[in-house]
Simulated assay, not measured.
Amino acid sequence: MKKIKCMIVDDEPLAVSLLRNYVEKIPFLELVFSSENPVEALEFIQKNEVSLAFLDIQMPELSGINFMKIVGDKMKYILTTAYSEYALEGYEHNVIDYLLKPISFDRFNKSIQKVQERFSFNETNEPHHFFVKSSGQQHRIHFNEILYVESIKDYVNIKTAAHEYIVLDTLKSMENQLPENFTRVHKSFILNLNEIKSLGSKKVILNSGHEVPIGDMYKSNLLEKLK
Rank of each mutant, 00 (worst) to 15 (best):
E24R: 02
E24I: 03
L29D: 02
L29F: 09
E30Y: 11
E30Q: 14
E30I: 01
V32W: 07
F33H: 15
F33V: 11
S34C: 10
S35P: 10
S35F: 13
E36F: 13
E36Y: 07
N37K: 15
V39N: 01
V39W: 00
E40C: 00
A41I: 14
E43G: 00
E43Q: 01
I45E: 00
I45N: 00
Q46V: 05
Q46G: 10
Q46S: 11
K47E: 08
K47S: 02
N48M: 05
V50E: 02
S51P: 03
A53P: 10
F54R: 10
D56E: 06
D56C: 09
I57L: 04
Q58I: 01
S63Q: 02
S63W: 02
S63D: 04
G64W: 07
I65N: 07
M68L: 12
M68Q: 06
K69C: 01
K69E: 15
K69Y: 11
V71S: 13
V71W: 12
D73Y: 13
K76W: 07
K76E: 15
K76S: 08
L79Y: 05
L79A: 06
T80H: 02
T81F: 02
A82Y: 12
A82R: 06
Y83H: 15
Y83T: 11
S84D: 09
Y86R: 01
Y86D: 06
Y86M: 06
E89W: 13
E89A: 15
G90D: 00
Y91R: 08
H93D: 01
H93F: 15
N94G: 09
I96T: 03
L100T: 07
K101I: 04
P102V: 09
I103G: 01
S104Q: 08
S104M: 08
D106V: 09
D106C: 01
F108P: 11
F108W: 07
F108N: 07
N109M: 08
K110R: 14
K110I: 11
I112K: 11
I112E: 09
I112Y: 14
Q113F: 06
K114V: 12
V115C: 13
V115F: 12
E117S: 08
E117W: 04
E117F: 05
R118T: 14
F119P: 11
F121S: 12
E123L: 15
E123Y: 13
T124K: 14
N125A: 11
N125I: 09
N125H: 15
E126T: 12
P127S: 10
H129C: 00
H129W: 03
F130E: 02
F131M: 09
F131W: 09
V132K: 01
S134N: 03
S134Y: 04
S135R: 12
Q137R: 12
Q138T: 11
H139Y: 10
H139F: 08
H139V: 00
H139M: 06
R140N: 11
I141N: 07
I141R: 07
F143L: 03
F143D: 00
N144W: 00
E145S: 12
I146H: 05
I146W: 06
I146Y: 04
V149C: 04
V149S: 06
E150F: 00
E150L: 13
S151P: 02
S151T: 13
I152M: 13
K153C: 05
V156W: 08
V156L: 14
N157G: 04
I158S: 01
A161H: 03
A161V: 05
A161F: 08
A162M: 12
Y165C: 05
I166V: 14
